[in-house]
Design a protein around this nucleic acid. Sequence first.
DNA 1: AATGAATGAGGATTCATTCAT
DNA 2: AATGAATGAATCCTCATTCAT
Lengths: 227, 227, 227, 227
Amino acid sequence: MTEQPKHQNSSETPPHERTLKRAISDADKDLRRNEILAAAKRVFSSKGFHSTTIADIAKDANLSYGSIYWYFDSKDALFHELMAVEEQALKDYIYAARKDATTRPDQSFQAAVQATFEFFEADKALVKLLFRDSYALGDRFEAHLFRIYEGFIGDIEAVVTHYQEKGEIIDAPPHLVAFSIAALITEFAHRRLETDDGLPASVVADFVIKLLLEGLLPRRKDRSGGQ
Amino acid sequence: MTEQPKHQNSSETPPHERTLKRAISDADKDLRRNEILAAAKRVFSSKGFHSTTIADIAKDANLSYGSIYWYFDSKDALFHELMAVEEQALKDYIYAARKDATTRPDQSFQAAVQATFEFFEADKALVKLLFRDSYALGDRFEAHLFRIYEGFIGDIEAVVTHYQEKGEIIDAPPHLVAFSIAALITEFAHRRLETDDGLPASVVADFVIKLLLEGLLPRRKDRSGGQ
Amino acid sequence: MTEQPKHQNSSETPPHERTLKRAISDADKDLRRNEILAAAKRVFSSKGFHSTTIADIAKDANLSYGSIYWYFDSKDALFHELMAVEEQALKDYIYAARKDATTRPDQSFQAAVQATFEFFEADKALVKLLFRDSYALGDRFEAHLFRIYEGFIGDIEAVVTHYQEKGEIIDAPPHLVAFSIAALITEFAHRRLETDDGLPASVVADFVIKLLLEGLLPRRKDRSGGQ
Amino acid sequence: MTEQPKHQNSSETPPHERTLKRAISDADKDLRRNEILAAAKRVFSSKGFHSTTIADIAKDANLSYGSIYWYFDSKDALFHELMAVEEQALKDYIYAARKDATTRPDQSFQAAVQATFEFFEADKALVKLLFRDSYALGDRFEAHLFRIYEGFIGDIEAVVTHYQEKGEIIDAPPHLVAFSIAALITEFAHRRLETDDGLPASVVADFVIKLLLEGLLPRRKDRSGGQ
DNA sequence: AATGAATGAGGATTCATTCAT
DNA sequence: AATGAATGAATCCTCATTCAT
C-alpha cells in the first residue's frame, strides 16, 4: 500500500535493495500497525479511552507494551489514528452509498437509510468510539472529532439533497435532516451496544425508517380510529 | 433567615436553639454543596470527568481543593451526586410534563415535545453530563447511569402511551418512540452545545417536531393534522 | 493545682479579681486538659498514634476538634504531654514501691514484683502507649521516650539494689535485672491487652514471679523426678 | 548464571530457550525484589512504617519511587511480604533449633536459649520489625502479625515441652515459658538496637540464661545443675 | 472558649513514555 | 524490532493546623 520510502535510510544497504527491503518492511509494519489499531478499537470501545492503558492494548495485540511505541508516537497519536481509520471506514461507506444513490435509478431513499442502519448495526464499536467516547475526551481531540463529524454529516447531507432533488423527500433543511438521520441511527446502535433491548435489528430498522419517512401522526388512509 | 441572637449563654445551649443553630449551619452547608455542584457541573461538562481535577472544581467554586472533601467524600461521590441532582431536574420536568399531558385536554403531543425540546435547549450541560460523558465513565457509574436512563425513557414512554391512547399518534412500540424522541432532542441539544449551527432554537425545534410528527415523505393532501 | 497566673492578661479586669478569675479559669482549663489527655490515652492506645486523628480524640472528649488546639499546641505536643503524664504515673507508682521497700522491713522483693505486675495489669493502656507504640514513632519522640525509659529502669534498679543489699536476691547486674523485670511484666501486660490468653491475672502473676525468683531449673528439693 | 546466547532467532523462540530466558529474567526480578526488601527492612526498622515513604525505600534501593510498584503492589503489600520473609527466617532458625534439640542428645536447653539469643542479637532489625513496629500498625496487619506471633511462640513451646519431658526444666505452663523466653530475648535485642548498653553480647546472654534457669533467689547448695 | 469551615503540605499510586539490552 | 524495567509527572485524598465567627 505504501511503496514510497519515507525517511532517509542511514544504513549501508545499496539503494535498490534498500527500497525493496523497505517496501517489505513497511508492509510488515503496516500489518502490525493495523493489528494494533484493531486491538485498540476493541479495548478503547470496551473500556473507554482513559481506562484503557497502553498495556491493555499491547496485551490484546499480543505485543509487549513497549513495542507500541515503535508503531505509534503516543497514546494520543494512536487514538487520533484510530479515529482517522474509523473516519475512513465511514467515508468509504458513504462514498458507496452516494454512488448507489446517484447512479442506480432504482435506489430509493429508504434503501439508503436501511443500508446505513445496517452499517452501524454491524460496527457498533465505531459508533461508541466516534460518537460517544470521543466527545468525553475534551480539548485534545475536539478539533479532530469536529472535522470528522462535519464531514460525516456533510456526506449524508449530499445524499439527502439528492433525494430531495428527485422529489422523494420533502424540502426540509438538508443539514438538519442529515443530522437527524445520523442521530437516530447512531443512538440506536449505541443503545443496542450498551444494553440489549431484546429486539431483532430488523424490527428496529423498520421502526426507524418508518419514523423517518412517515412520522408519528396517523396518515389519512389509516386514520379511521383517530381523532 | 432568622433574627434570634445566637451567642448568649455560654453554658448549655437550650435544645431548641441548638436545633436552630444546626438548621442554619445545615442550610449554609447545603448552599455550599450546591455551589460546588454547580461548579462541578460547569467543569465536568466542559472538560469531561477524567480531565477535570478536584482542583479545577475547587477553583471554579472559589475554594481550596481540600475543602471539596469537607462536602463530598470523593470525586466519584461528587459526580454521582451531580448525576442524581441532574436526574432530579429531569424527573421534575417530566413530572410536570406528564401532569400537563394527562390533565389538560387541550395539551397536544406536539406541545409536549416542544416543551421538552426547550427544556434541554435551556440546559445543554445536563445533556452533556448525563447523555454523553456518563457513558464514557465505565463500570463505576454504569449502574447509576443505566437507572437514570431507563427512568427517563420510561417517563417519556408513559406520555407517549397517553397520546397513543388518545389516538393522537400512531401505535408504534412506545419504548422505541420514547427513545427516538429522547435521541433526537438530546442529540440536537448536545450538538448545539458543542458547535453553533447558527440556527435559532425555534427553527430547530420546529424542524424536529415536524420530523417526528410527519416524517420526510411528502404528504399529499392530508395536511389537516399538521400544524 | 495551679494558682499562679501564667501570662499577662490584657483585658480590663482589676488585678485581684482577675487573679481569682484566672485561678478558676485555669482550674477549668486543667480539668479540660485532663479530659482531653484521658481521651487521647484511650484513642491512641486503641488505634495507635498515626491512625488517630485529632477529630477522633475530640469526639472521644466530647469537644469539637478545633478546640483541642486551645489546650494543646499540636498533635505531637499532645502526645508528648500524654507521655509525660504516663511517666508521672509510673514514677508515682515506683516512688511508693520504693518507699514501701525501704521503710517496711517486712516488704519482700516478691511482694514488690507482685505489686508491679498488678500495676501494669490494671493499666495496660499505659504499656501500649509507652512501651509499644512510642517505639514506632521514630525520631520525633525518640529522645523523650529514651529519657522516660531510662528513668523507669533506673527506678526499678534502685529497688533491685535495695533487695540485693538485703541479700534477698542475687548479686546480678542490677540494670539487667531491672530491665528483665520490666520486660517480662510489660510484655505480659501488652500481650494480655492484645490477645486474651484466657488465664486469670493471678496465675500469670504467680508464674512470672516464680520464674523470676526460681528460674526454670528444678530446685534440689523438688528434683526427685528430674535428671 | 548461564552462557547460552540470548538473542539469536528473531522469529519464534523455541520453547526451551523461552523458558530459559524467563528463568533468567525471573531470577533478576527476584534479585531486585530482594534488594528492595532489604532496603525496606533497613528503612522500616529505622524510621517505622508510617514515617517511611515509598520514596525513602526507593532511594535506599537506588531506584525511583515508581519502580517499587513494578515489584510490589503497594506499600502494605511490601510490608506484608517483608513480614513474611522475616517470618521465614524465624521459622528456618526455629526449625534448625528444634532439630538440634530433638536429635542431638547432648544438646541442652541452655544451649538452645543461647543460640536463640544469638540469632536475635545478629538480626535486631528483625525484632524491631516483627516484635515492635508491627504492633503499632493496626488492623490492616493484625491478622498477619498474630499468625506469625502465635507460630513463633508455638515453635518455642515445642522445644520447651521437649526439655520438660526430658526433665531438664520444670513443669511450668509451656506457653507461658515460651512467651517469657521470647519476651526476654526479643526485648533485650530490641533494647540493644535502640540504645547501646555498653555490654558485650556474651555477658547479656549469660545473664539472661542464668536468670531463666536459676532465677533471682540465691541458691543454697544445689549448684550442681547450674553452669 | 468553642466551633467547624478552610487551607495546603504530604504521600500513595497510576501509567504514559523512555531506554538499555 | 522487541522487550520490559525504570522514570517521574500528575492527581486523589488525608488530616494537622489555622482562623473567622
